[in-house]
Computed example of a mutant assay.
Amino acid sequence: MPKGSLQVEAGYFLQRAKEEGVRVTTHAYPTALLRVGLLDWLELRVLGALRDSVVENDPRHTSRGFSPLNVGLKFKLWEGQGWWPEAAIIGRAALPVGSRAYRPDNPEPEIRLALSNELSDKVELAYNLTHSWVEGDPRKGYTLALSGDVAEKLTFYGEVFGSKQKGEKAEHQADIGILYLLLSNLQLDFSAGMGLNKAAPDFFLTSGVSLRLPR
């Protein structure tokens, strides 16, 4: 984020998964990410969402409320050049605030190494490694995404990502998405994805809008 800029990203998330043999449908509406450019190399991030989870067993049960508030910083490490990738580190924590059904008992930190290479003027490869703690147990994750501009304001992308928590089976997922630059500071997006193994959610859908100020 440029210094002095503010960006708001809001959207909708739908996921269908099976947990211990029980079907669970989760909605988040809206998800909201606030990004503030503090310095040329430093960005503040605040993430929150209103969500509900429907457990489709007998009896049917629904949980509603605010997900944990995530607060973090993104540090730009260096610019990319040729085969050498652009790099940044994102540190954040899920705080023990929000609705009782979703908030953690203690802060849950996460650190992410974000790398990207411009393969051409229109194609970019991004890849991330993450390490976090959930309920006191370590979780490791990865993301690999390829995006390409097919028109002046239209971008398509595809990605695979996954995570592995201690004592749990690894989850691997994939999705495809589209980004449309409606205005110079207003972007729309949509994606659809699915699980690649039994431990992962069955499918998910996301849609959103991003607004950056000043224009």
Rank of each mutant, 00 (worst) to 15 (best):
Q165S: 12
G48N: 10
W83Y: 10
D175M: 09
L73R: 10
A174G: 14
E135A: 14
A126K: 06
A88M: 08
T155K: 12
D137V: 09
I176R: 07
D189M: 05
E152C: 05
A32W: 02
R64D: 10
A199R: 01
L213P: 03
E110H: 03
A101S: 14
E19N: 12
P59M: 11
A93W: 03
L115K: 00
K140E: 13
V36S: 02
Y180V: 09
A10T: 15
T25K: 12
T31A: 06
N117W: 02
K164T: 08
Q7A: 10
K74Y: 00
E9Q: 11
P214I: 08
S67L: 13
E171I: 03
A199I: 06
V46F: 07
F204G: 01
E9N: 14
A49P: 03
G193H: 01
L146C: 09
F161K: 02
Y180L: 06
T155P: 00
E110R: 07
V36M: 05
E19K: 11
E9P: 00
R215I: 08
T143F: 07
L211C: 05
A145S: 15
F156C: 03
E171A: 11
E124L: 06
P85M: 10
K76Y: 11
H131T: 11
R45D: 05
L44T: 09
